[in-house]
Every structure is written in structure tokens, then in C-alpha cells.
Amino acid sequence: MEIFLKNINKSFNGKLLFSDLNLSIKEGKMHILYGNNGSGKTTLLRILAFLTKPDNGEIFYKIREKIFKYAFPYSIQKDVLLNVSYLHQKNILLKGNVDYNIKIGKILRGEIFDEEFYRLIEMFGVFDFIKKDINEISEGQRRIVCILRSLSVKWELILLDEPFSNLDSNYMERLKKYLNGEKDKGKTIIIATPEINLVNGLNYDKILKLENGKITG
């Protein structure tokens, strides 16, 4: 999937986050969105995921030769969204056990549980606590549950907002390995991070530094 942002403006609570932002994301590339807390990383990802509307500007999504335009009045483009996966900065989990929380992504999207899914679960070794209630696991384990939920659905573009928070080195390794593998398959990945050291080990193509509403790098 290719994305092209054109003249995106966004203010939040009176503070200008981006003005006339132009950005091009090529297919099969991994981008790191890097900036201080409050610089607008989350907002940018949310705009791309159709969760927040920009003040003005347009976004073009190109999926398998088809181009979708996202412009005023910024209604959710379901055809695009079905190819996008998003991870919140905060862990949003539902009442129930780990199994249910990981599966709910595919359940909502109406996808079947195939081999690929079970291989993903196995790769991250969550079987040990798969039946545990969501309240009984650690914060890091909760994070990995959310990550798996987002990874498990079919996506061409994935937007991860600070995915490494609270993860131990083990999980971090596995996640980086997995993402590198997905990139090789031609998928597009954008990761937001406040700390540049966290992305060591990822085969990223570009670092986009978000500062004062402008992207550099």
C-alpha cells in the first residue's frame, strides 16, 4: 500500500500539530515516526487510521493499483480500513481472557482463524497464559496481547503507536523479527517511537522526525 499525504493541517486543543504536511509512504517500506511526547506522532497515526479527522488536506491510499481519496468531510473509507491495522498507544482490552482478546480483532473483521493465525500465536509463545483472565497478567503481557490482536488481522499497512512500551527483551526480539519478516513480504509499516534506540534491530527505511509540525528526515 502506498500513502500520500497532501497539505494536512491539524490543530489539537489550540496547539498547531501539523501545517501543510506533505508526506509520501512507499509500498513495502518501514518508516519510523520519531518525535518527543506531544509532538503529534499519535495524532498522525490516528489520522491515517481514520480515527481522527484532519482539519483540512487530503490523503491518497493506493492499494493494488486502485486509488482511494480521503478528503472532506472525511468519512471512514472502509475499503481502505480493511487493509489497515492499528495499535493504540494505550492497552485497550476487553473483559475476558487472553484468548478472547487476541481473537476479537479477526472476529470483528469476520476473518477465519487459519494456520497463519496459530503460527503467529505460537511464535510469541503466549500459549502458557492464553486462558488467563486479562486482569491476571502483567502489563507487558497485556501489551503483547494488544500487539497480537493488531498483527493477526489481514493488513497491507500497519500503524504501531509505541509498540515496545513495557515489553521485555524477549518479546521485543520476536516482534522485531516478525515485523522485518512482514516487510519482506511487501507490507508497509509505520512505527511511532519516542526513543530512537528502541528501533535498533528493525530493517527500517526511513526515520521521519516530527518536530514543530514538520517532518524532517
Binding site: 481514520f50 480515527l51 472502509k78 480500513l81 480493511l82 485497550i92 480483532g105 470483528l108
Partner: peptide, 20 residues
């Protein structure tokens, strides 16, 4: 709003949101 966003992100429709 959190639940609503999870439903939105995973393309749930109105009915799925309600059930969730």
C-alpha cells in the same frame, strides 16, 4: 470511547459494536 475505537479500528459495523 475506547471500546468504540476498537470496534472502528477492526471494522466492526453498528450491530457488532452494539453486541460488543
Amino acid at each position: 470511547y475506547e471500546i468504540k475505537e476498537i470496534n472502528e479500528v477492526f471494522c466492526g459495523n453498528f450491530l457488532k459494536n452494539l453486541l460488543l
